[in-house]
């Protein structure tokens, strides 16, 4: 793994993680896209040094083809997941005019009634 690629993976993963921490779904999606690219780059670098395509008849230093196949699959999956999330963000926007990820309603209700939780929570 070259130093430049390592830096790029780190920057993408860092920025992606920061964006995923937000409540707005569009930012989360951007963050997930960055994280996905960081991971894909990581797979690509796991194949070792770049070289010739490993095709019969060619000579020289071959590059490992497996990570490239893996990356291709990971990209396809990432494409599918991101388009699904985008449509969810759109749906969320048509329903209530924003795309914030809200808290679990039932959790919130329980947290609002602390006394009741204590009543049931100590069976012994």
């Amino acid at each position: 793994m070259s130093f430049g690629q390592a830096i790029l993976v780190a920057v993408l993963a860092g920025a992606g993680t920061y964006l995923v921490m937000h409540r707005t779904l569009t930012r989360i999606i951007l963050g997930l896209a960055m994280l996905g690219n960081a991971v894909n780059l990581l797979i690509l670098t796991s194949g070792g040094t770049p070289g010739e395509a490993p095709v019969i008849g060619r000579t020289g230093e071959f590059t490992d083809p497996v990570p490239q196949a893996l990356v291709l699959t990971a990209i396809v999956i990432g494409f599918g997941v991101l388009s699904f999330l985008l449509s969810m963000a759109y749906r969320s926007w048509t329903i209530d005019g924003n795309d914030e990820v809200e808290d679990d309603i039932a959790d919130r209700r329980l947290a609002d009634e602390p006394d009741e939780v204590v009543d049931h929570g100590e069976p012994t």
């Binding site: 048509t94 209530d96 005019g97 924003n98 914030e100 919130r108």
Partner: peptide, 13 residues
């Protein structure tokens, strides 16, 4: 034609 896009701060919770 739904209502104008509501900013998040308007919401009750």
């Amino acid at each position: 034609r739904p209502a104008v896009k509501r900013p998040a701060s308007d919401r009750s919770n």
